[in-house]
Design a protein around this nucleic acid. Structure first.
Lengths: 208, 208, 208, 208
DNA sequence: CATGAATGAGTTTTCATTCAT
DNA sequence: TATGAATGAAAACTCATTCAT
């Protein structure tokens, strides 16, 4: 629970940074712990001392990515304000847009994190809920609550908020996973923003 | 001397069937070809004789999944009719709904195929475009065209059809990948249908 | 003992011809019987029907090479005459020269046979006595006898003929094995002839 | 941290020693690295850690044999003296005799090394020049120079020294390769010495 | 604590040989 | 008699993990 000593932690950070690169490039199974150790400039034993085994190293890497993503999004979207209050202030729709944009920006800047996300799903069958969507909302309740209030307020249609949260997360996930492969055609940000706009306003004509 | 497809192919089919199970359960790297051979009731050499190596075996498995999915969806959605003409007849929105439902039904029935899809993305960096969404639309042009006509007809909002196609595919992909893990809570079909409904009509209230 | 049917033997010949190429190029262990069968245009089973197993196929190839070499040398050197009588007629020294030259010519024309010879020594520990040095002298007695008479006649120094035969054979063997690798610098024939000349007349000055 | 040569190398030495036995007995292709590891009392991984792969292990073995042979011959023949100077002193003919004898002694004592030599030729097509014939003469120039001076001095006949060097080496090689198989009949040393004597003084009678 | 040499279980792949057709 | 699909024993090589220094 407690942070490592300020000095040693440096080493852990370095290992994690290199592990990210290697896992992203090679995949979990194919990655060689020796390579990670070498890149981090430490002995293999040190890696094992810090993280126990390869699996835990991967999981730590994944957690680290999530934390970083969460922090980035929180910073970009909220700038320290309370999400629920902020939503009430600027509206849920603009907030969801900001979330999506920040989300895309982050993964555009760090495509390796997408690979980690996918690896975790594929190797460990972990649900890929972009839990870092909201500040500290490791358990999605934040998003649910936000939507609920917006529905009550009439800003959003009267939908099942659980379903809506799932759909929003699934859309972001799917877009980022496929979008980060599509070379340089469109930026990931543009793709995500386009998709979210459709999601917000619907594909069907409204007069129907 | 004898043709390979009708009867003899039986053995290849069997191998593919078991490979699907094993790859889905263990993941590509972790899967042991020996296990596949044993389950298929053939020698390991036979597997290699048929598929060359592990990678090609996996790719063949993946292709097989895609083909089956495509055939199922085609059957369910179109029943032999021409997709474009059919869309003109019943409307693009109902057609997209049918596609999504069939898509979900298929993967609900065969969750292993989802794992294969994810493995392929994770191991081989293959874009996961649900190319089998439409009959013979191995190149998504079908869906694009369908949407284009619906936009002209005024059935859909005047959106960028390329973006819309991407978003629709990404949404299906994301929902299926995450949905098939969520135990039995909600059926995958319900989740997908809910998500698509949102996508079609929008999350935001219309008066905005 | 009896030759195969005049028709089927054709097939055996073809197999042997291709086996020679493959064994020479790949080495005994590394050679793939399937490749030989393919090149010979027959099924793998046919190869086994004709030669029993890989080892016997190799040995048959080797024997075939030896036979061909023997026949060539016999033709070149003796033109049908009796070796002993012929030596009495033209002298042992000229005869040994002719043998060496023919020997070198043969292996220069068919370097694969050198590889086979080496493989046999290396894989099966067979003494590599160029038994084909003389017509029908599969058992070197021919050469011994020839030298013995030349010694008696005073043509050759009073040496141990057994030793001399061995040395002559060893020299030819060593020269051919190393000479066929030395690219195109000197022809194998020149190298062998040079070596034999030294062997005949000695390296040391005669006044000693 | 610690040097690799003096003490730790012990393990590498042991592996090499056992590899020599196994390669000699089984041949390169037929040899099983596991067996070598077992005999050396180390894990298979250790063998691979030290030598990279089977081929490099073999090549290291071969190099080791050559080094040992070279050192032995140098010691026996020269006892630390300069080869050229020594030849001037005792004469080239006695020196060549000493070389041949030492050469034969070495391989008589270590017949495995002959097998390695043959394997290398057969598997890797390496020219088998007994480069270790002379002290530090990894490039035969030593022998060439030695003969040149002896020719000038009138000790040897006016022959092409390059040809003579080749012939001498080929003769030694051929004799050793065939001689070490001939059971215990004659010692390898006797066979080589006999062959070299013939080579030095010629087979033909001198009056011719 | 850090290190990296040592280990050996685990996997892929090859190919000689067989045998049903 | 000819074939080539099927087989599985065999072997090279890798790499997570341990532990003596």
């Amino acid at each position: 629970m407690k942070a490592d000593s300020p000095k040693t932690d440096q080493k852990g950070r370095k290992i994690l940074r290199e592990a990210l690169k290697v896992f992203a490039k090679e995949g979990f199974r194919n990655a060689d712990v020796q390579v990670i150790a070498d890149l981090a400039g430490v002995g293999k034993g040190t890696v094992y001392r810090h993280f126990g085994n390869k699996e835990q190293l991967f999981l730590a890497t994944s957690r680290h990515c999530l934390t970083e993503a969460g922090e980035f999004i929180q910073r970009e979207v909220l700038s320290g304000r309370d999400p629920i209050g902020f939503a009430d202030e600027i509206g849920a729709v603009p907030l969801l847009r900001r979330i999506a944009t920040a989300y895309a920006q982050h993964y555009q800047r760090q495509p390796e994190a997408v690979e980690i996300m996918i690896q975790e799903r594929s190797e460990f069958r972990e649900t890929v809920f972009p839990s870092h969507l909201m500040h500290r909302a490791e358990h999605r309740e934040g998003l649910d609550e936000l939507l609920r209030r917006a529905v009550e307020r009439g800003e959003l249609r009267a939908v099942d908020v659980t379903q809506a949260t799932d759909a929003f997360a699934d859309l972001l996930f799917g877009t980022v996973v496929n979008g980060c492969l599509s070379g340089g055609k469109t930026s990931l940000v543009a793709r995500v923003e386009g998709a979210v706009e459709l999601f917000l306003h619907g594909l069907a004509a409204r007069d129907e």
